[in-house]
């Protein structure tokens, strides 16, 4: 059994310097994007096929002027929706928990884009494929940490084996809880979707950071949906069958008596 890899993003340590964004672009040789000012320091405005990680600048509208920062990227879910919905098997989850999209097998059908509960995968019109964070697979396979973790100057990003990272998260959680006992930060991703490969330590509600409070597999009721779709259609067809049979009999009787 290969140990699962994981990353902890401690948002309380993030200063939004965006070193992680730059390091990601450099290591993965992703081009810069032409952007424009949108009224926020968040830049580029959203993830794209060539921006795999992005520090979100969130300004809560609660009267107080402040910022919340969250490094957005693929969360490498254990129950990964992209892997489940991929019709070609291009999206796959490795034994070490890293979720990748095989660029040689991706057809660009975009089902994963529409299905990801975190809006992560992005379509690249240049390659005709869907691309996203690879957890710097080529670095990790050589015993290095992902470029973003390496570049982070405040220690907000740590990478390692999942059990160790979880221990670290709990330790940090108790330190922050001492400062503010009423409001212990949440370890987001410990259990969610079978455990996320990227866990966040969140001092405020997950929704304040643009995350789902309770992410769930969108395909979980799919059998029920098939059945609810089939039943009325089958009922209508049964109705048509009855109607045609009746008419046939009536018409048959008529033509019989007409023949006499």
């Amino acid at each position: 059994m290969i140990a699962k890899k994981a990353m902890l993003i401690d948002v309380s340590k993030c200063i939004a310097c965006r070193a992680c964004q730059v390091a990601c672009k450099q290591w993965n040789q992703l081009p810069a994007e032409k952007t424009h000012f949108t009224g926020s320091y968040q830049n580029p405005p959203r993830l794209s096929a060539t921006t795999w990680t992005l520090v979100n600048f969130i300004e809560p509208e609660d009267g107080e002027t402040r910022w919340l920062f969250r490094k957005q990227q693929c969360l490498h879910c254990t129950e990964a929706t992209c892997v489940l919905v991929c019709p070609t098997g291009a999206a796959k989850r490795r034994e070490d928990g890293i979720v990748i999209i095989d660029q040689e097998a991706c057809t660009g059908c975009k089902d994963c884009i529409e299905s990801c509960p975190f809006n992560t995968p992005q379509y690249d019109p240049e390659t005709g494929t869907v691309r996203k964070c690879t957890f710097c697979l080529d670095r990790v396979e050589n015993g290095l940490e992902p470029a973003c973790a390496k570049a982070c100057p405040t220690g907000a990003i740590t990478f390692g084996e999942r059990e160790e990272i979880l221990q670290l998260a709990r330790k940090r959680q108790s330190i922050l809880a001492e400062k503010n006992p009423a409001d212990a930060p949440r370890i987001y991703g410990e259990k969610e979707l079978g455990g996320l490969g990227v866990m966040y330590l969140l001092p405020e509600k997950a929704s304040a950071y643009g995350l789902l409070e309770n992410p769930r597999l969108p395909i979980r009721n799919v059998v029920f949906k098939w059945i609810v779709g089939i039943i009325p259609a089958a009922a209508v067809l049964y109705g048509i069958r009855r109607y045609l049979r009746e008419k046939k009999t009536v018409a048959g009787v008529k033509s019989d008596s007409g023949g006499d």
Partner: peptide, 28 residues
């Protein structure tokens, strides 16, 4: 096939599509 097109959309987290009724809308 008549149900499939609805289930495809209904199996996403999209709030408009993720409805148990959408496959029935499309099949009928």
């Amino acid at each position: 096939v008549t149900v499939y097109t609805g289930v495809l959309l209904a199996a996403t987290p999209n709030p408009l599509w993720n409805s148990v009724l959408l496959p029935a809308v499309f099949s009928i």
